[in-house]
């Protein structure tokens, strides 16, 4: 009988990266590439992410796929607030990262003005490989996290 020893942090982070459920939330063109990532060719379920939750209460990750407009901004913020901690944000595509080609009255110049972003993915729209790379980058980030540093733990204390 082999014995496995590990730290609590490693075990928790392994669990978190192994089954990270994204919110079923698409805005614009990038959402089509997000769908392509989940479909047959790129198969996001390899990373335990095939289950798109339609409710923010049940999801860990919000992929902001597309341009966030001034009218949509309060909605995005409310969705983020409704998600349970720990939660992560990926800004997918140029528009969500910095406004992209739409430097105008209607578009928020980067979703980081509304919600804190963990990973930015460049591209207009990013290829599915880029999205997968962004998700793996997020996994790396989570693996480096410690329970002690988590925001919600501080809030509870």
């Amino acid at each position: 009988m082999g014995v496995v020893t590990t730290t609590l942090d490693t075990a928790v982070n392994w669990a978190r990266t192994g089954a990270m459920w994204p919110l079923l939330f698409g805005l614009a063109c990038c959402a089509i590439e997000m769908m392509a990532t989940q479909a047959s060719d790129y198969d996001l379920s390899r990373f335990g992410m095939e289950l798109n939750r339609a409710s923010p209460r049940q999801s860990d990750l919000i992929i902001v796929a597309g341009r966030v407009t001034r009218k949509m901004a309060p909605v995005v913020r409310q969705l983020y607030d409704q998600m349970a901690s720990p939660k992560w944000v990926i800004a997918m595509g140029d528009c969500a990262s910095c406004g992209g080609v739409y430097n105008n009255y209607a578009v928020v110049q980067g979703v980081d003005e509304i919600i804190p972003v963990d990973v930015y993915i460049a591209g207009c729209p990013p290829r599915p490989e880029q999205l997968i790379h962004g998700i793996l980058t997020l996994h790396e980030k989570i693996k480096g996290d410690s329970l002690r540093n988590a925001v919600y733990v501080k809030e509870l204390a």
């Binding site: 910095c98 406004g99 430097n103 105008n104 209607a106 980081d112 003005e113 509304i114 919600i115 804190p116």
Partner: peptide, 21 residues
């Protein structure tokens, strides 16, 4: 409704004013 585009030379100036969440 044009906003200044962020490059590496002006990133600090823009981040100072950007209302980050």
């Amino acid at each position: 409704g044009y906003e200044t585009i962020q490059f590496s030379f002006n990133v600090e100036e823009i981040i100072k004013h950007k209302p980050l969440a």
